[in-house]
Computed example of a mutant assay.
Amino acid sequence: MIRISLEQHTPAVTVAHVTGDIDLATAEEFREGVAERLASGEVFVLDLGGVTFMGSLGFSVLVETHQETERRNIRWAVVAGEGPIQRPLRVTGLDDVLPIYPSVADALTALTTVDS
Rank of each mutant, 00 (worst) to 15 (best):
M1F: 11
M1A: 12
I2P: 02
R3M: 10
I4Q: 07
I4R: 04
S5R: 15
S5I: 13
L6Q: 11
E7L: 13
E7T: 14
Q8F: 05
Q8A: 11
H9S: 09
H9M: 09
T10V: 06
T10R: 07
P11C: 06
A12T: 13
V13N: 00
T14Q: 05
V18N: 02
T19W: 05
G20D: 03
G20N: 06
G20F: 05
G20I: 07
I22D: 01
I22F: 05
D23I: 11
D23C: 09
A25F: 15
T26Y: 06
A27G: 11
E29R: 14
F30R: 05
E32N: 14
G33V: 09
G33K: 09
V34Y: 04
A35F: 09
E36T: 14
R37T: 09
R37K: 14
A39E: 13
A39Q: 13
A39T: 13
A39R: 15
S40T: 13
G41V: 12
E42Y: 08
V43D: 06
F44W: 04
V45T: 01
V45R: 00
L46I: 07
L46W: 05
D47A: 02
L48S: 02
F53D: 04
F53S: 03
F53L: 10
M54C: 15
G55F: 08
S56R: 13
L57T: 13
S60M: 12
L62C: 03
L62K: 02
L62W: 02
V63K: 03
T65H: 04
Q67Y: 11
E68I: 11
T69D: 03
T69C: 15
E70Y: 07
R71N: 12
R71T: 13
R71I: 12
R72G: 09
R72N: 13
N73Y: 11
I74D: 04
R75H: 12
R75I: 05
W76T: 02
W76P: 01
W76R: 03
A77D: 00
A77P: 01
A77Y: 01
A77W: 00
V78N: 01
V79C: 01
V79I: 06
V79K: 00
A80G: 12
E82R: 14
G83S: 05
P84E: 08
P84I: 10
I85V: 15
I85D: 00
Q86D: 12
R87N: 08
R87T: 14
L89M: 08
R90I: 15
V91G: 04
V91D: 04
T92M: 07
G93H: 07
G93F: 10
G93P: 07
L94S: 03
L94G: 03
D96T: 15
L98I: 07
I100V: 15
Y101K: 05
S103Q: 08
V104G: 00
A105R: 14
A105Y: 10
A105S: 13
A107E: 01
L108D: 00
T109Q: 14
L111M: 04
L111C: 03
T112Y: 11
T112F: 09
S116R: 15
S116T: 14
